[in-house]
């Protein structure tokens, strides 16, 4: 591996990491795999803090370990970008918004759920998140197509079909794809 973690970062970096993660988490409705493309758009595409391939590796680990994927991903990405402190800051920024929102809502759930203006804002933000996810998906897919390797494209097609159309358990898919990788994809050309 080329480098260890970038642990020596300035205060400016930590502030930017906290604020950007906090805002993404605060305005990403739906949880789970929805926040990951947005974190990628911010950390990789906008700030260039981490490379594409590395981000995908870390998300793959986040998906395979116990716990909530969004929290896991922020811990792993934060650790890569700025060591243990980075992991702590990214995790805190990921869980604080739901903690605050849910605490507020638990006092006034009915009012919140039936307020039409809140529903309008949430609907709008959900469409915005859709655009961002689609953009990240297109970007990642076209990179894989450009590489022109058959096996990864078959994994994408198979995993997508099983997950989206047949609701196959994600853990099972991760296990199968990991085994395919273990046996057939050790070559550096798949890196």
């Amino acid at each position: 591996m080329d480098s260890q973690t970038n642990s020596a970062r300035g205060n400016h970096f930590y502030r930017a990491l906290f604020i950007s993660t906090f805002v993404i988490s605060a305005f990403t409705v739906g949880g789970g795999f929805v926040i990951i493309p947005l974190l990628k758009a911010k950390y990789v595409d906008e700030y260039g803090w981490i490379k594409d391939k590395e981000a995908l590796d870390l998300v793959a680990i986040a998906q395979s370990m116990p716990g909530v994927v969004a929290a896991n991903a922020s811990i792993l990405l934060g650790y890569r970008m700025a060591g243990v402190l980075g992991a702590a800051i990214a995790l805190l920024a990921t869980i604080l918004p739901p903690l605050i929102t849910l605490t507020a809502i638990s006092f006034a759930y009915e009012a919140f759920a039936s307020n039409p203006y809140i529903q309008m804002i949430l609907k709008g933000m959900q469409c915005g998140a859709t655009a961002l996810i689609v953009n990240v998906a297109i970007d990642l897919l076209s990179k894989q197509i450009k590489k022109g390797l058959l096996l990864p494209l078959m994994i994408i097609a198979g995993t997508f079909t099983a997950n989206f159309f047949f609701d196959v358990n994600i853990m099972l898919l991760v296990l199968i794809d990991g085994l395919i990788g273990l046996f057939f994809m050790r070559s550096h050309k798949f890196d």
């Binding site: 959900q126 990240v136 990642l140 990788g181």
Partner: peptide, 30 residues
Amino acid sequence: IGPIRGILNGLRPAVVALIIGAGFSFILLA
């Protein structure tokens, strides 16, 4: 290391597929 690299090479396209799936679900929702 070879085997770990293999597993990660297999999982990376899987993550791409899951992100594409999330994209489609969200388009339906939008």
